[in-house]
Amino acid sequence: MPTDSLAARVWRTDIAGAGAFVSYVVPRSPSQTVLEVVTYIQRRLDPTLAYRFACRVGMCGSCAMTVNGKARWTCRTHVQAVARDGVLEIAPLANLPVVRDLVTDMREFFDKWARAKGHLTPTTTRHDPLARVAPDSDKRRAVDAGIECIGCGVCYASCDVVRWNPRYLGPAALNRAWTLVNDVRDGGNRERLGAVAGDAGCHACHTQQTCTERCPKHLTPTAAIAGLKRLTALAALRGELP
């Protein structure tokens, strides 16, 4: 294989759902991303390859895949940074059912956001004045630390606890819950803390921090989960957990 080429081993599934890696030779180009490699394979070599992407600029969270063993956002991952000896192994995200090839079923991932009460429970109506939240307040800062999640699923696919305990809500859903716990406009914390406590919630986390290490947005779900552990423990002592 010429040195200006890349050996891409890509996970392919058949109609029965069985999978195997298939090798493709892809030409290298300057600043080439992993998503560009996958796109090249689909457009030039094998149009039956299924994968998911949308924005290509790290905003939508659609294109996460397992690249050389680690979950990554492929649109912002340079081949140069992750290829080992000119080889790139691309697989679907772990801990999620595979629909086909590199496409995973994200329903359970987002259902867990709903189970963690990841929606705002308003305490005012549209007729009330807008809430004033000081940007430098502790609560607003806590929200800022976690609010940029793009829902890519990298943390969820990297979490060993999700693998061991499929009911575990996972880092993204708990991070979302933490941003709402700190949202002064929200009135749903009693139910939310009840939803995120327990062996399917924040208490299952072993603080291994793989989610934090691999989050492409450099968020720290581990800190969010630690915050939920503290608050749920206090709420339990006060008898406030449903």
Binding site: G194, A197, G198, T232, A233, A235, A236, P242
Partner: peptide
């Protein structure tokens, strides 16, 4: 509740 038990 299971949530309270686990938290405690």
């Amino acid at each position: 509740s299971a949530a309270r038990r686990e938290a405690l």
